[in-house]
Amino acid sequence: MRTLTKRATAPDQDLRCEAAALRWLAEAELQGGIHVARVRLASSDELVEEAILPGSPSREGARAIGAALARTHAAAAPWWGCPPPAWPKAAAGYVIDGSLTPVIPSAKLASSSWGPFFAEWRMEAYLRPLVDGGTIDSGQRALLERVASRVADGAFDAKEPALVERAISSSTPDAPVACARLHGDLWAGNVLWDGSSQAQTGGALIDPMAHGGHAESDLAMLALFGYPYLDDVIAAYDELSPLADGWHERVGLHQLAPLLLHCVLFGGAYVAQTLGVARRYA
């Protein structure tokens, strides 16, 4: 197996978080979930993982990716915002270039639905550094807080895709299920076209920020910067695990979290785009 090595780039980054995420997502492969790069070695400052042999985009591969991603989401998660098992106890979340995407360490701290989770632990978590750093002004802050308030109140809550809903309805107190098992940073660069001769799922996942969330968040992230044959990915997903009514209208809403994070990471370059999306939900 060819490997690649990653090293921590910030004092508060712990690569055991990413290793835990890779292993958690890989568990879904037993149920037909999408392939995930294998962890070979992990410590707080170094991660050695499988190097994916790149392949070429195709309509057939896209449909395989869509169906396999639906099964990965259906592997589910016990609470909104949960971290993967084997999560380092001292880690508050995923760190990228000094930014923090928090996880919720205990079900006792978790919201009972998507809206309050997304508003507090995604939108507001990214808003604070934007306000503190002066990246957005008071009027822009008011707009984003108004959207976050509507989200928190449940105005945009919707069911998960059908396979995830099935997992939720069949869960037990000993094995609770609240939501989908997400990759968490599912942009095009993290869903590789798998060129290995053993490839069964069209693609392979790398660089996750895995947590419990709404499956529509992963799909919205995949659409944010474009992906080859995306319509085929979505169609195959929807055929296997039908999406809730109105999902098209919620794509931009789910994109607000990665857009806000991009504002944190890259400054004002993404502010206008983020505000344009936010106005649709205010």
Results as ranks from 00 to 15, higher is better:
Ala26Lys: 07
Glu249Lys: 06
Trp87Lys: 11
Gln140Lys: 04
Leu240Ser: 01
Ala67Asp: 09
Cys179Trp: 00
Gly184Gln: 04
Ala210Arg: 01
Ala244Lys: 04
Val95Cys: 05
Pro57Asn: 01
Leu69Trp: 06
Asp231His: 11
Leu253Tyr: 01
Lys108Thr: 15
His73Lys: 08
Ala26Glu: 06
Gly195Lys: 13
Ala10Tyr: 14
Thr5Val: 14
Asp174Lys: 13
Ala220Gln: 02
Ala64Arg: 10
Ala8Gly: 03
Glu160Ala: 06
Gly66Cys: 12
Arg122Met: 14
Leu186Arg: 04
Ala158Gly: 13
Gly93Asn: 03
Pro173Thr: 12
Tyr270Leu: 06
Leu15His: 03
Glu27Ile: 09
Ala42Leu: 02
Trp80Val: 01
Leu256Tyr: 01
Leu261Val: 09
Pro85Val: 07
Val36Asn: 00
Pro105Tyr: 14
Leu130Lys: 02
Gly203Pro: 10
His73Trp: 09
Thr135His: 14
Val277Asn: 00
Leu224Val: 10
Ala220Gly: 00
Ser241Arg: 02
Glu46Pro: 05
Arg23Met: 14
Gly139Asp: 11
Leu47Asn: 00
Ser113Phe: 07
Ala74Lys: 00
Gly268Asp: 09
Asp238Asn: 15
Ala142Lys: 12
Glu165Met: 15
Glu160Ser: 00
Val151Arg: 01
Gly202Ser: 05
Gly226Ser: 13
Leu127His: 10
Ala272Ser: 12
Leu256Asn: 03
Phe117Arg: 04
Arg279Cys: 01
Ser111Pro: 13
Ile136Lys: 08
Pro57Asp: 00
Gly154Ile: 07
Leu109Pro: 12
Gln200Ala: 12
Val48Ala: 08
Arg40Asp: 12
His214Trp: 02
Gly55Ile: 07
Lys89Val: 14
Val147Tyr: 06
Ala19Gln: 04
Ala272Gln: 12
